[in-house]
């Protein structure tokens, strides 16, 4: 084994798509959309900037997912392990915020926007966490 190969013996160094960058971009759009909606409460006159940001966020999530499916060798087992538990945690967190919005009888259109933004948030963060872990793990055995 060469020195260079040994250097990364415990940590695989693979060329990976920019999943983390896309995920952070999606997170920024989601949070910016949330700020725009929350800043107008109880009005909902100009929701379109938040809608645009939500669409961009969802688009980045889709691209992120697509690029991940194209990775030939990846540590999917640790990815799933982290993703599942993180998703559980973020469902609880997003659920608490959703509970507050519903309890306060938030207007329907605002509630729909906030719910969609929370869903995007709850999908993005576990994916970021799981990918961050899996990129440094050994790829799953083929076959």
């Amino acid at each position: 084994m060469t020195g260079q190969a040994q250097r990364h013996a415990g940590t695989p160094q693979r060329a990976l798509p920019p999943v983390l960058e896309l995920g952070v971009g999606s997170l920024v759009c989601t949070l910016a959309g949330g700020v725009i909606v929350a800043a107008q409460v109880p009005n909902s006159d100009t929701l379109w900037p938040a809608v645009v940001l939500l669409v961009i966020s969802a688009g980045l999530l889709v691209v992120m997912g697509f690029l991940m499916t194209r990775i030939s060798q990846f540590a999917w087992r640790p990815f799933r392990q982290v993703w599942q538990w993180a998703m559980l945690a973020y469902i609880v967190i997003a659920g608490m915020l959703e509970y507050v919005f519903i309890k306060d009888k938030t207007p329907d259109n605002v509630l729909v926007m906030l719910t969609l933004l929370l869903i995007a948030f709850a999908l993005t963060v576990p994916t970021l966490l799981a990918f961050s872990v899996a990129r440094f793990q050994e790829a799953d055995q083929q076959g």
Partner: peptide
Amino acid sequence: MAVVALGVLEPANIAVLFE
């Protein structure tokens, strides 16, 4: 703070623990 914490801090923390 959420972008920094959830996009950088927390992923790094978990990755360190797994490493």
